[in-house]
């Protein structure tokens, strides 16, 4: 036990606060910037206290959009991002828990081959297989669709491996007890394995939701229509480099809005998330 005196407590707190300030200050600045009118920021001033245009800016951002650069309001982008992130997270969990179940609990021909194939795909992230993936998506008429946004990102080796590791720690006797209790493979999966995986699924959901939400390259390729843009792409497109003035207050408001859903997911699922990472309920 570390000795507790005032000095001993002070130093860690100081270090923590410095860390917090370093991490949080840019976010705070973005928030401040999103509450002024265009002229203030364009003049090169950067006040440290929030301004008075909060409601006006956010209303415009969500429902109208920037005047020149993107025609779509951010509300639509938020919706697109949410659909994509949710489909990726839920799709990945569903696919990987089923494939892990097959690999761990069933003895079939080429079981190990299947496992290694899944394992090898770990080495091929989206960026590496971007051309063939795009070609397939295009041939299947998936451009500018939600399916096109989510499907190619769903197949997941990481999540399959994670569930596989978890299933291997479930005691063999539980399977045997289930068999004696008259539960077939499906009932065992539904009545025992799924409830036991609850915290793992929650942890994965948080990670995968953020992963999906932050996708940049793939949505950039697969969407061309403005009303299919995700918010991450939207921010990029709002920043003009040529003749017009970037409406920084709108860009910052968009950035703030883009941050909210992942933060909400983390905060709401924090308890389950932490339990899923550290504790196994067996």
């Amino acid at each position: 036990m570390v000795e507790r005196n005032r000095f001993g407590n002070l130093v860690p707190h100081l270090v923590l606060w410095i860390g917090i300030i370093i991490v949080a200050f840019p976010v705070y600045l973005a928030f401040v910037a999103s509450t002024y009118d265009q002229a203030t920021i364009a003049n090169g001033q950067m006040p440290l206290l929030p301004g008075t245009h909060f409601f006006e800016n956010y209303y415009r951002t969500i429902f109208i959009g920037t005047s020149g650069t993107t025609r779509e309001p951010v509300g639509q982008m938020l919706f697109n991002s949410a659909v994509m992130a949710l489909s990726i997270a839920l799709g990945k969990i569903a696919i990987s828990i089923i494939s892990a179940y097959a690999i761990v609990y069933f003895r079939f021909r080429f079981r190990m081959a299947a496992f290694w194939l899944i394992f090898i795909t770990l080495m091929l992230p989206v960026e590496v297989r971007i051309y063939p993936t795009y070609k397939i998506a295009a041939d299947l008429n998936l451009l500018d669709t939600y399916a096109g946004l989510a499907l190619p990102l769903i197949a997941s080796a990481t999540a399959t491996l994670l569930f596989r590791q978890f299933f291997m720690t479930v005691p063999e006797e539980l399977v045997e007890a289930s068999r004696i209790d008259g539960a077939g493979p499906f009932r065992f999966f539904q009545d025992t394995l799924l409830p036991l995986s609850r915290t793992n699924m929650a942890a994965l959901f948080v990670i995968l939701f953020i992963y999906g939400w932050n996708q940049y390259l793939w949505p950039l390729l697969i969407t061309t229509r403005d009303d299919m843009q995700t918010i991450v792409i939207g921010i990029k497109k709002m920043i003009v480099t040529s003749d017009a003035i970037t409406e920084w207050q709108i860009v910052m408001a968009t950035a703030m809005l883009a941050m909210l859903p992942p933060v909400a997911v983390v905060v709401l699922m924090q308890r389950l998330f932490v339990r899923g990472l550290v504790e196994t309920e067996k």
């Binding site: 005691p171 006797e173 025992t192 409830p195 309920e281």
Partner: peptide, 8 residues
């Protein structure tokens, strides 16, 4: 031996 009760 390890009871194998359903923990949930």
């Amino acid at each position: 031996q390890n009871y194998a009760l359903y923990p949930h």
